[in-house]
Structures are given as structure tokens and as C-alpha cells.
Nucleic acid binder design. Structure first.
Length: 191
DNA sequence: CTCTGGATTAGCT
DNA sequence: GCTAATCCAGAGC
């Protein structure tokens, strides 16, 4: 786990597609989801929160890989990242979309959605569905109540590489990755 | 201290 | 396609 995560963010972002997150809720239920879309950020990248070095917010990003970096944005949303790279590198992988593996009804109650496909197909949506808030900022993903379960990397032919979404700087980097066959990807590249 | 803009989303036109 | 919702981190003074 540590070795896998200690590599550069774009590599981990690509290879972590298909891995699982397991969320345990306080009522005893658990939800299993599969990561289908990610973006990479690191300190050399103007779009990254870590670009200007360690601040109160980015301390977690500069800490141990395998921990969760949760940030609050647009006055109402949380987004989740997995800290990657060696300690001190300030790199992370934003989880942009997951798809439910276990019974979706366990998490659908956390969000009001008409279409099941809208349940977890965005970085803030999946945080809402899995009840991820700043309380979990800095959480070690080896532990309850949120665990990362690594799987073998997907094949290149199943992965699409694209530009990142929602940023104004750093548009030239193609650091977004998603699984071509997933219906839960937030936004696919047009053909 | 003040100001700016954001790794978004839902709902409406 | 457009925009309101709604807060706070970070920068500049």
C-alpha cells in the first residue's frame, strides 16, 4: 500500500482506478464503492492547493501518503483526496467519481437524487453520499471508518486521459483519468 | 483587516 | 447554457 502510493500523483491517479473504498457508518452498515475517476495534483502544479507550500489547510497534503485530504469549497461542498507521494511532497489524488458496488440504497438516503447515476458521479456528490466531511480530514485510510482497498491497476485500453475539470490555471496538463466503461464518470470527453 | 475567487452542484431557461 | 447558493483560505496591505 505504502509503496504503491509513494509514487508521483499522475501515476497513482491512473493506477488507483478500479480500487475500492469501504465506508462504515455509525449505524453499523457499510458501503463499498469503486473509484472510477480521479485527478492528480502536486506541488509543481499551479492548480494545486499545495502550490504555495504548507499552510493550515494543506498540512495534510504534505503529510503521510495514504491519508485523506478533505477540503471545503464553494461555501457548501466537500471534496476528498488521497495523499500520495513521499511525505513532504504535497501531492494528492482527487477522487472525482465512484460507483456503488454494494446496495446503493445504503447511501442513497444521504442524497436526494432522481437518477441513481447522479448519486456519486462528482467529487462533492460522493462526499455527500458517503458522509465525508472535514471530520475525516487527515484520516488514515488503513483504518475504519473509511478504508482504501487497492486492486490491480486497470489496463490502459480501459482508461481515458483528459484535462482536469473546474480549474482556471494548469489547463494544459492531462491529469484526469477515468474508466471508459463506467456510467458514473462525472464528465466524459466527447468523441 | 479586507477582498477575491474557488479541484461544485442543482435547478431553471 | 446560466447562475445562485454560501463560506473560508490565502494573499495583500
Amino acid at each position: 500500500m505504502q509503496e504503491f502510493l509513494e509514487r508521483p500523483a499522475p501515476i497513482v491517479a491512473r493506477e488507483i482506478l478500479g480500487s475500492y473504498l469501504k465506508r462504515s457508518f455509525t449505524d453499523g452498515s457499510t458501503a463499498l464503492v469503486r473509484i472510477v475517476e480521479t485527478e492528480a495534483y502536486d506541488q509543481s502544479d499551479v492548480a494545486s492547493h499545495s502550490y504555495n507550500g504548507i499552510t493550515p489547510r494543506t498540512t495534510v497534503m504534505f503529510g503521510e501518503p495514504g491519508h485523506l485530504y478533505v477540503y471545503f469549497t464553494y461555501g457548501m461542498h466537500y471534496c476528498s483526496n488521497i495523499v500520495v507521494g513521499k511525505k513532504g511532497h504535497g501531492a494528492a489524488v482527487l477522487i472525482r467519481a465512484v460507483e456503488p458496488v454494494s446496495d446503493p440504497s445504503l447511501i442513497v438516503k444521504n442524497r436526494r437524487v432522481k437518477n441513481i447515476l447522479d448519486l456519486t458521479n462528482g467529487p462533492a456528490k460522493l462526499c455527500q453520499a458517503l458522509l465525508i466531511t472535514k471530520e475525516l480530514n487527515g484520516h488514515n485510510l488503513n483504518n475504519q471508518p473509511l478504508q482504501l482497498i487497492l486492486e490491480k491497476p486497470a489496463q490502459n485500453k480501459d482508461i481515458v486521459e483528459a484535462t482536469r475539470i473546474g480549474i482556471s490555471k494548469g489547463r494544459e496538463l492531462r491529469w484526469r483519468y477515468y474508466l471508459k466503461e463506467s456510467d458514473f464518470v462525472s464528465k466524459k470527453v466527447k468523441n
